[in-house]
Amino acid sequence: MRATKLHADAFSGCNPIVNFMYFAFVLGITIFFLHPVLLGISFVSGMVYSIYLNGGKAVKFNLAFLLPLMVAAAVINPAFNHQGVTILTYVRMNPITLESILYGIAAAVMIGSVILWFSCYNAVMTSDKFLYLFGRIIPALSLIISMALRFVPRYKAQIKRITNAQRGIGRDVSSGNVIVRIRSGLSILSILVTWALENAIETADSMKSRGYGLKGRTAYSNFRFDFRDRILVVAMLLFFAGIIASIALHRLSVLYFPAFVINVPDGFVLVAYAEYLIICTLPLMLDIREDLIWRTLRLKIVSSGNKSSNGADV
């Protein structure tokens, strides 16, 4: 709801079912399997997509927030975890092992990926989409969420109005020490609470007047599930099944402790890597495809424009 996108994102235009399934798959695999190759793929594609969606803001965020967090995660693990057989050195009588360093890096990349993918999620999954998905499963809770999302900006505006009105009768809240400020903040909150509760009764009246509470309520949405969405869902399910099968067959496996062991990259495994790469870069591929189409369309428009003007000359 607050994300203002740099440019149209083709993936955001897909049905919310596609969006949600996608993020569930990618986040699920990222969180559940600390496989170095899968994590690497996830991290890089998450990074590129988040920059595609959020632009310079994302770069700034990544450097200022994500990087220190990842460094911390990478350092904390070997500092506290002394498992593993390959001892590199001792710090204050505690062994630092290669395995725990590797694990630390994996954990750091996992955290980084999760946060990157969530920043994409926040840009793609607007509140309408969430409510479309869950409006049928949890109708009452979805309605509360929708109402709360309507109330929050309204209340913020009202808090400003109350603050100004109170200043007009000599209650300035921006001065004084912390306790005084908290007290005046609380009196504003108190005025807000009364106002909100009393006025909300009319909201309830308006709901009842429009038949809320009748049996068999439906959930309307503007979204359609078209052919492209169907193809995407089938493709995602296939690739996902492929990866899960590889994991279940112990072909995609990794062990950090006591010693670092990773699966042999045979043909089967390479296919699984490729599948995961395709899943992770799916939105980007859609976007690139759309960008190319637009470019050719624009070329056509320009060239046809030239032609017609030439024709007029003749």
Binding site: S127, L149, R154, N199, E202, T203, S206, M207
Partner: peptide
């Protein structure tokens, strides 16, 4: 304002 229920 009071009558509007949802956010969209």
């Amino acid at each position: 304002d009071n009558q509007i229920v949802t956010d969209k």
